[in-house]
């Protein structure tokens, strides 16, 4: 079970103040019964949608029309999944959600790479080189993280149109790189600030320059935070809808946009099983990342929490 794997792989009870609440004595005290039944009811609210998505996606349409959404499928069929992936239509294209999936991959991979490359250099320059005026830019960047995207979208459209990459994948990658910068820069700046100053000074005395220290010393040391950054960015960019719908053209639409177009299309008969299979398909990537990364995901949002 997922529970068990998490318990074994994570270091528990780091300091005694852990779980400071009143302690249970007996296994089946009245208090414990209340706690566990409350947890169970709440867990139901969180698990219900996932369960319903799964069972719906495995049923045929007649069964959905007659039966109950909570009932497990009497006859399991994978047809909705196949259709959602390879033949369902959006507009004129009938090659399924696979198109959106590959678009999302093509958007996410370079966006994650460039945003982390730039932000890690930013964080490194800000924490260890501290040139004059650097903090002014950093402050603007952090304040910028709170500005609603709607305020900056239109000038961005004009800029991309002027450069000639409006609607291209490269334009969308640029947008993700720019708007991911505040949080990631903060993440790397805080990490590199904790690097012992002596290490940096020793490398300087040995004659290493800006890039040598970055590539040879800092980047290898930053592996844990790099992983956190990759998790954070991959999930955020994969789940993005707003930038996808504004900065890409229909042939380049990421999975979220295509999914919404499929499910909320007004034409044709609604195929709920295909819709739910499609929804699950596009949730699969972030869910996999979440389940594999465990505590690192939490670290990512804790870092995001500082920024907003």
């Amino acid at each position: 079970m997922a529970d068990a794997t998490f318990t074994h792989t994570t270091p528990r009870r780091i300091w005694p103040a852990d779980a400071a609440g009143p302690r249970p004595r007996k296994r089946f005290s009245q208090r414990n019964i209340i706690i566990y039944s409350l947890l169970a009811v709440l867990a139901l609210y969180y698990l219900l949608p996932l369960y319903v998505m799964m069972v719906t996606s495995l049923k045929g349409m007649p069964e959905i029309a007659l039966g109950n959404i909570f009932a497990p499928p009497t006859e399991i069929t994978f047809e909705p999944w196949v259709k959602a992936w390879s033949t369902v239509c959006t507009g004129l294209n009938c090659d399924g959600l696979s198109r959106g999936f590959w678009n999302s991959v093509k958007i996410t991979v370079p966006s994650v790479f460039f945003s982390i490359a730039i932000a890690s250099v930013n964080g490194y320059a800000l924490s260890l080189w501290r040139f004059k005026g650097a903090n002014v830019f950093f402050t603007i960047l952090i304040i910028g993280a709170f500005i609603p995207y709607q305020v900056m979208i239109y000038p961005m459209v004009i800029l991309l149109r002027e450069i000639g990459i409006y609607g291209d994948l490269s334009g969308l990658v640029l947008v993700h790189t720019i708007f991911g910068m505040p949080i990631l820069t903060l993440l790397f700046r805080n990490y590199f600030s904790s690097v012992p100053e002596e290490l940096f000074k020793a490398a300087r005395v040995d004659g290493a320059g800006f890039w040598a220290i970055y590539f040879r010393i800092m980047l290898p040391m930053a592996l844990p935070i790099l992983v956190v950054a990759v998790i954070l960015q991959t999930t955020a960019i994969w789940n993005d809808f707003l930038f996808g719908v504004i900065f890409s053209r229909p042939t380049n639409y990421p999975m979220t946009v295509q999914l919404n177009n499929i499910v909320n299309s007004v034409q044709g008969v609604k195929e709920y099983n295909v819709n739910m299979a499609a929804t699950l398909l596009s949730a699969l990537v972030p869910l996999t990342i979440y389940l594999i990364s465990g505590k690192l995901f939490v670290r990512g949002i804790a870092a995001g929490a500082v920024k907003g």
Binding site: T7, T235, N239, F241, A283, L287, L291, F297
Partner: peptide, 23 residues
């Protein structure tokens, strides 16, 4: 285990969230 259950919705997109609750 419980924490994994309570936090997983945060990993999926608002589009997925909206569509499943619409259903």
């Amino acid at each position: 285990g419980f924490r994994t259950i309570f936090l997983y919705p945060y990993a999926v997109s608002f589009i997925v969230t909206g569509l499943v609750w619409q259903w």
